[in-house]
Write a protein that binds this DNA or RNA. Sequence first.
DNA 1: ACAGCTTATGATATATTGCAACATTCTAGG
DNA 2: CCTAGAATGTTGCAATATATCATAAGCTGT
Lengths: 165, 165
Amino acid sequence: MKHAEHGKIIGLSIAKAIDSAEASCSKAGIRLTEKRKNVLKTLLASDTALSAYDIVDEYRAEFQDSIPVMSVYRMLEVLAHENLVHKLASVNKYVACAHISCDHNHEIPQFLICDQCETVREIGVRKDIIESLQDSVSNSGFMLTSQQMELHGRCSDCQQAVEST
Amino acid sequence: MKHAEHGKIIGLSIAKAIDSAEASCSKAGIRLTEKRKNVLKTLLASDTALSAYDIVDEYRAEFQDSIPVMSVYRMLEVLAHENLVHKLASVNKYVACAHISCDHNHEIPQFLICDQCETVREIGVRKDIIESLQDSVSNSGFMLTSQQMELHGRCSDCQQAVEST
DNA sequence: ACAGCTTATGATATATTGCAACATTCTAGG
DNA sequence: CCTAGAATGTTGCAATATATCATAAGCTGT
């Protein structure tokens, strides 16, 4: 069961996120078409990161409509450019941005990826930590471009599952 | 030119790394076979990360011997398990561990990947930075396990190349 | 040295991911 | 309505990854 239920309790926050997405898209002069919106909804409704091919499957299940992978890739590209979704390079999957509805400005996204259940948590990391990390990097003569971090580990649920073995 | 020259100046440090690899393998009860050794040598001699298929090519060029990809994947798996090589998940490539010959214990490997020339630098990050990062993460109920960070950016060479445009 | 077990490698086929290139449809403005 | 540009569909390929069965190489006890 990869999906949280649509149109129920969670549905509200999804609707809110879609509203915000629509707002920021129109502001940016980007069309949030029906399909793009549905792709975003699919990601919002999922509690795990999805690959492009996963999205095709979920999309068909949710919206009774088949959609080519190629299109999904392009839509993801658009959505990612608007910061509505993030690409997790380390697993080649995508998640909806956890802060679509928030008005506070976008920080550098950091992700905790549970290697067991594949849950993804988007977290804030104290700025000074990031900065010292960045220092340590630039000391090596390197300049970070994306400075998005993806950290792998175990979420609390999966830890407990292990302990109770 | 993806390869540094074999058997020359660099050859010494490779030989040393191979020695260390042999030591840690025999300690772990793993056989460092000729082919595994050659795969490792291939990675050690390369200044960029290599895909499994790249390794097949380099291997043939270096050792005048054709080797199936399947085998390369299996050997990489073994070598990675012994921490002699690291897999860069964000680019689906592999690098030799930069600390094979070092005796100091393995820290969390951090990789700086130049998106331009694909050079990979493995760096050490100050322990306190990692620790505060770890704190910030465990506050979210997460436990880091196989923590490996892959940071994308520009190496100093490529930065200069851009500046002088 | 040999039989028999285990591990390593080879060979073949196929799945999966990602994207290029061109065709078609849709949409907004004139 | 008509047309340019944007969005989506279609086809096909290249790179990555794994499954499966077959063969070879190493080790172990007799």
